Simulated assay, not measured.
Amino acid sequence: MKKSLIFLLILKILSACSASKEKMQMERTSNEDGIKFTYKPEDSLFSGFQLKVIPIDYRLEVTEEKIQVIADYITNAFPENEITFELKNRIEFVDSGVNLETISCSHCGSIIESELWQEEMTKAHKADFEDMDFITPCCKKEESLNNLKYNTEAGFSKYQVTIINPDYNKVNYAEFVTLLEKQTGIKMKLIWAKY
């Protein structure tokens, strides 16, 4: 029931966006994890370079109205790029791919070993990332996986927009995120990823 409501919501929003765009194809895929729509202009190029947009508050439930504003704004800002809009049934880690090299404690700055991080991520994943707290080995303080210092931005969210192969020089990204936040009232995070 919930999955079909989410599907109808996103379909309605993205249909409204697509009505004003020529030569656009919208692809829908769904599975037990959630629903994904892909905006794919005819001349778009695929690459392993991506810009991901997520809310900073990983617990935020994005409303229908906000999703429509986000979809309109981003497809207008990147009309020539392939863009995916994903709404998951549960919180997921949104990574930066090969750009992620080090993870540090937010309390003392010590490097968190990847084996420990992966172990804590596995535990948190089993609980759908509802509890991300653990005790750091470095300073023995309570820490959240969400608050760790990733050398490149990363985060957690149910909602994610991915822009494929954005031209870094065509858009002022500080202005892009500021305007998006003003229009939605949602604090956003940009994650530059490479795969």
Rank of each mutant, 00 (worst) to 15 (best):
E143L: 02
T38L: 08
E175A: 04
L11A: 12
D43W: 03
S30W: 08
W117G: 06
K2V: 14
K149F: 02
E115F: 06
K12P: 06
L87C: 12
F7M: 11
I67N: 15
E64S: 14
L45D: 10
Y195G: 06
S44R: 03
S110G: 02
N165W: 03
K2L: 15
S104Y: 00
A193C: 03
K123V: 13
C138Q: 04
T136L: 02
Y173M: 00
C105T: 03
T75E: 14
E153K: 06
S96Q: 08
E119G: 00
W192P: 00
E61P: 08
C108L: 04
K21S: 09
Y173R: 05
E115L: 07
V171H: 00
A71G: 11
I163G: 09
K141E: 07
I74A: 10
A16W: 07
Y195D: 07
E153I: 02
E92M: 12
K182H: 09
E181T: 15
W117F: 15
L180E: 02
T29Y: 08
E82Y: 05
I135E: 01
E32F: 11
M188S: 07
Y159W: 15
D128P: 02
K170T: 06
H125Y: 14
P55Y: 12
K12E: 13
R59M: 13
S110C: 03
K2T: 10
D167E: 10
R59I: 04
T75P: 11
L11C: 09
T63I: 07
I67F: 15
D57P: 05
M121C: 12
D133Q: 07
M121V: 11
N172K: 05
E42I: 12
